[in-house]
Design a protein around this nucleic acid. Structure first.
Length: 434
RNA sequence: GCCCGGGUGGUGUAGUGGCCCAUCAUACGACCCUGUCACGGUCGUGACGCGGGUUCAAAUCCCGCCUCGGGCGCCA
């Protein structure tokens, strides 16, 4: 396939070979058109049915939609062709015929339900919209990685099969590891913290996490991709700076490099880099503001976690990304540090999009005695986490960090109605295949 | 985990007790058509998730199961 030309690169006067999928055949009688699609676009192949070789016309016009074909011919300038050029074929080869009855319509003339699309993801991703989402996701991941490198991070990978959970609270997928009890990891949290105490100091990871919660919503997955960041010698304010920088980098990269995809998704004006610096509301300010909206039946009191309804009320009120800082220690995990002068208040924060929570992070507890006390307060056995706590006895620097859900980032950026749109092969309460 | 709403040709849908051996679009098959670009035209094939019940009569009502989607909790 060395001599293959992409459809978008076809220049008049050239003799080329294009290879791709049969998008459509339009047979008008004496003239017929075969539209070939590849990842760069589409091109029209013209058959003058009375004048051309009979078997060539037969092959080119009787091929089923979505079959894979290779067409060799001359590119001619033709104002009447959709792209201004068309191929006058010398030969057409069917590399892989498709069954005539397709489980969904990649041209998009007839809609398909999300579950039908997910059952036939390969075909679904031949359509412009679905493909565009994953091209944008790829751009986001590249931008995020580049940004982390620009602020001196080392990319790491931590184990996904673990002996204990991170927080003990959430549901884990159990498995058997050579006869031992083990779990799929729900977060790189503990491992990335161990790395800030290593010579690496400042790390990030992009990888999967697994949560066995039986939720059934458009914003949860049982296998998700997390962007984790953790750095030594920074506090939660600096961690928020990096967090905001990462998100801006992602939006900027998409705005700069994904014109075509945004156009396909009809989002050219909808996706823009956030202008304002993200407001940093304290938890206390947040609940006051929520109560002031009057959207909730019952007023929130200090110590309440924010319900979905409360988050929505606040999101509508703020109208853009924002941080919530200084959460009550009670509702944040043990590894988040409390304020020394107010132990009821933690240095945890969340980054919110008006639609949902995107990031959770905070200043970590790096002092051994306080950390162990925190375990006990949350009813966890410090012994079970000895591999983790032990390292805090050998010089663990002050540090902070956070974690994003990639799918939520893409979902909120593109206004996708369902998080499954942002994963190739989602794992949810009922879907395990493909 | 609790709660709510759906499942009708390949795909997406209409139909809420008899007007339904089921509507429309698209796809598929056949034929006609020399500039389509959602090509057009004629004809044709093709479906009520599964099991039980109520009724003279069930796609339609009831029960169970399967399955899909959503709300809440919790979270990324």
């Amino acid at each position: 396939m060395d001599d293959r030309t992409h459809t978008a690169d076809a220049e008049p006067g050239e003799r080329i070979t294009v290879a791709g999928w049969v998008h459509e055949v339009r047979d008008l009688g004496g003239i017929a058109f075969l539209i070939v699609r590849d990842r760069t676009g589409k091109i029209q192949v013209k058959f003058a049915t009375d004048e051309m070789d009979e078997s060539l016309v037969e092959t080119g016009t009787n091929v089923s939609r979505e079959s894979v074909v290779s067409v060799t011919g001359t590119v001619e300038e033709e104002p009447r062709a959709p792209t201004g050029v068309e191929i006058v074929p010398e030969s057409v080869e069917v590399l892989a015929p498709a069954d005539p009855e397709l489980p969904l319509d990649p041209t998009g003339k007839v809609d398909a339900d999300l579950s039908t699309r997910l059952d036939n993801r390969t075909l679904d991703l031949r359509s412009g919209e679905s493909k565009a989402i994953f091209e944008i996701r790829s751009t986001v991941l590249k931008a995020v990685r580049d940004y982390f490198r620009s602020v001196g991070c080392t990319e790491i990978n931590t184990p996904k099969i673990v002996a204990t959970g991170t927080e003990g609270g959430t549901e884990l997928f159990p498995l058997t590891y050579f006869g031992q009890e083990a779990f799929m990891n729900q977060s790189p949290q503990l491992f990335k913290q161990l790395m800030v105490g290593s010579g690496l100091e400042r790390v990030f990871e992009v990888g999967p996490i697994f949560r066995a919660e039986e939720h059934n919503t458009p914003r949860h997955l049982n296998e998700a991709t997390m962007i984790d960041f953790e750095s030594a010698f920074i506090d939660h304010h600096e961690a928020m700076d990096v967090c905001e920088g990462t998100l801006r980098a992602a939006y900027e990269a998409v705005e700069a490099n994904c014109h075509e995809q945004l156009e396909t998704l009809d989002l050219t004006d909808a996706v823009t880099v956030p202008q304002q610096e993200f407001p940093r509301l304290t938890y206390e300010e947040a609940i006051e503001r929520i109560n002031a909206t009057g959207e909730l039946d019952e007023q929130l009191v200090w110590g309440d976690d924010l319900s979905t309804e409360a988050e929505k009320a606040l999101g509508d009120d703020v109208g853009g990304h924002y941080f919530i800082t200084d959460w009550p220690s009670e509702i944040k995990p043990f590894y988040i540090q409390d304020y020394d002068d107010d132990p009821d208040l933690s240095k945890g924060f969340d980054l919110m999009h008006p639609r949902m929570e995107l990031v959770s992070g905070g200043q970590r507890e790096h002092r051994y005695d306080e950390l162990v006390a925190g375990f006990e307060q949350q009813g966890l056995d410090p012994e079970a986490f000895e591999y983790y706590t032990k390292m805090f006895r050998y010089g663990m620097p002050p540090h902070a960090g956070w974690a994003y859900g990639v799918e939520r980032l893409v979902m909120t950026m593109l206004g996708l109605p369902n998080i499954r749109e942002a994963v190739l092969f989602p794992r949810d309460r009922q879907r395990l295949s493909p």
